[in-house]
Design a protein around this nucleic acid. Sequence first.
DNA 1: CAAAGTTAATCAAACGATTGATTAAAGTAA
DNA 2: TTACTTTAATCAATCGTTTGATTAACTTTG
Lengths: 218, 218
Amino acid sequence: MINFVLSKIMEKEKTDKKDYILDVAERVFSEKGFDGASTRLISSEAGVNMAMLNYYFGSKEGLFLEIFNRKISSFQDILQNLGNDDSISAWEKMQTYIDMYGEKVVNNNCFQKLLYQEMGMNRRTDLSDKLRDMLMKNVTELNKILTEGIANGEFKTDIDIPMVIATLYGTKNYIINTPMMSSPLLGYDIQDDNMIETKLKPQIKSFMKNLLKAYLHN
Amino acid sequence: MINFVLSKIMEKEKTDKKDYILDVAERVFSEKGFDGASTRLISSEAGVNMAMLNYYFGSKEGLFLEIFNRKISSFQDILQNLGNDDSISAWEKMQTYIDMYGEKVVNNNCFQKLLYQEMGMNRRTDLSDKLRDMLMKNVTELNKILTEGIANGEFKTDIDIPMVIATLYGTKNYIINTPMMSSPLLGYDIQDDNMIETKLKPQIKSFMKNLLKAYLHN
DNA sequence: CAAAGTTAATCAAACGATTGATTAAAGTAA
DNA sequence: TTACTTTAATCAATCGTTTGATTAACTTTG
């Protein structure tokens, strides 16, 4: 019976069982943390036998790593080559980045939570290094855009580039990672998919543009 | 021998054993998370017998709660009555808040990490509610200051108050909670106490003032 | 074609290790 | 003594993992 329901879900979402387990594990890990999420809980939430996790992913850690490997590739190209495009102004690039980032990232808020949860542990592991490199690519690109904007006179000369970047990521993280604070603060449930689409996304994009426009521009 | 060293440390830091255990536990919890930090690890790091934790704090959860109870009182009065003071402008209040917040919060970065780690779990517990209420007091105060600034014409009428607050806390959290990102970004080790004092604090304060000044002001 | 063999997928049960917690005894200071 | 601290040993529960058996779907063989 459960398998019937499961198969229906899988069929609808056009994903195989392995991917489905990864989806569930991503959510559970993001809610409970790596140590707080037992393999028994993950497997029961996914409706599969406990042994299947080891069968598919080798170990709990293997499952954890696979969650990240699956997403890393799709995050690589968020704003690739945006910094090298000479046909648009630095400010237009910033706006484009804010739009893309706001779209992509808010859609993956479970993963985002998990990502920064892992980064926060700051253990020196292969995974952490890989994630840092992944995130640093975007940071570097942002750095390039901002530097260019200063050089060509679009932006003020005394802007604090690292802090601007920290503001961009930090504001988003605060909202996504602490809904217990941000929901009452914003006045709507930021865990509600409908609210995310109709209110949160436009609000974040609009605010970040206005904020940075005021700070960056001459 | 270990007890001798411990007693020397305690003597130097002028704190009793219970407080010392809480300090160690705060750090370990912030590094490993609640589930990742075993009572054996905490007790060995603190140089005390495992049973002492239960003797002093009743349970692992009791120890965890005590860490927060100890800090909550000192966080209550960060900016009490700042919003009600009519003798200074809203912008001066914001500056004062940024200074106080930047000072207090960066000094307690282990606790801050732990705090937002727990808030991020968004489980509905007494502790979470208490922490939310504690943080909400500051949010409310900020709200009051910003609303006042709009009303008296100091600030623009179309500023997004909730997002301003999210930016203020989010930027700080990003820097404190993900040193693996913020250290290479800022160009110095934000875990180094000396760097925190000489570079990070002034930089955060200065940047937040400039950023908000540009965004808020007419 | 049908029988035999092979494979991957799935399961309940159990493994050893570790967890948080408890105990009873020993130590310490007033 | 008496009351408070500290200890090593031990507890049941839970952890991640492994096992051996069973199922179902293909392949091969005669």
